[in-house]
């Protein structure tokens, strides 16, 4: 549900992955996604898949949840598989009929791509399963803070992100409320052509804008009252600290990448 956006698909837990520093987690997730694309053959890809499986185990996120995150990409998976099977030619021909043929290379590429996408989805969804959007925003703010010397307003951007995360559920509730009120006055939002429907949104959009401005105004007061004057001189309650577990995970990831490079080197390339 959209309303759960603040926690995204966060799965509460206390696993190794949950307790990792979000900055390290973010960097490693990016790193490992790149690593997926370095894999050239089934051996290195198998190592990568093994790593992803291990990460799932260490995250404590149930397999059911992981499968749920793969579900939305099923169509893409099927599509890529079909395209690759029929359009990539080479090697032994397994099957031929009229203009359609299935070759060894086609099957291999299809399989390879599908596994690659699945691993990609699993790794990136592990990040969102074990990290709340708020923690992610904080991590991004801290990682980008060196950009301050280039006068990039990192704090302001992060504050805007946080406020967006905070207010999206509130605004969604508000939209529901306004929609119900206008429906109760006979507003017809479901039928008619495109123009009619666009017009029907006016009674919802205007009150939403009015109330959003009011909220923004009040929020600005409330923030002023709590002595908010921007990022300067601000401290943070939650400090991000790198622990042994973060370095161990980093080491494991480096080892996997090294393994991938070695396996790429010793076995023939599939892609």
């Amino acid at each position: 549900m959209v309303r759960d956006i603040t926690f995204g698909q966060y799965y509460a837990g206390k696993s190794l992955l949950h307790r990792m520093d979000p900055r390290m987690k973010l960097i490693l997730t990016f790193g490992m996604i790149v690593a997926i694309f370095i894999c050239h053959n089934f051996y290195s890809l198998a190592l990568m898949a093994l790593f992803a499986a291990a990460a799932v185990v260490f995250s404590g996120v149930p397999a059911k949840m992981i499968l749920k995150s793969i579900k939305p990409v099923m169509v893409i998976l099927a599509f890529t598989a079909i395209l690759n099977i029929f359009y990539t030619k080479g090697g032994e021909t397994y099957f031929e009929w009229w203009k359609i043929s299935v070759t060894e290379k086609g099957v291999n590429t299809a399989l390879f791509t599908v596994i690659r996408i699945i691993v990609l989805v699993v790794i990136s969804s592990l990040l969102t399963y074990t990290t709340t959007p708020t923690m992610l925003t904080d991590a991004i703010e801290r990682l980008l803070s060196p950009l301050k010397i280039f006068h990039v307003k990192v704090h302001t951007l992060a504050m805007m992100m946080t406020l967006a995360l905070r207010f999206i559920p509130t605004l969604i509730e508000e939209i529901e409320r306004i929609m119900n009120a206008q429906k109760a006055r006979g507003a017809d939002l479901e039928s008619g052509g495109l123009i009619h429907r666009a017009k029907a949104l006016v009674p919802i959009f205007i009150p939403l804008m009015v109330s959003s401005f009011r909220r923004a105004y009040e929020l600005a007061f409330a923030m002023t009252c709590r002595c908010y004057t921007g990022g300067n001189g601000r401290t943070r309650m939650k400090q991000m600290k790198l622990h042994a577990r973060d370095f161990i995970t980093l080491f494991v990831c480096l080892a996997v990448v090294a393994g991938i490079i070695v396996l790429n080197h010793f076995f023939t390339r599939i892609i």
Partner: peptide, 23 residues
Amino acid sequence: FQYPEAQLFEETVARDIAFGPKN
């Protein structure tokens, strides 16, 4: 509904009151 003033949207009060009857 509660806090019905949140549903006001028209340019004039008269037109807003007329929204239901118009529908």
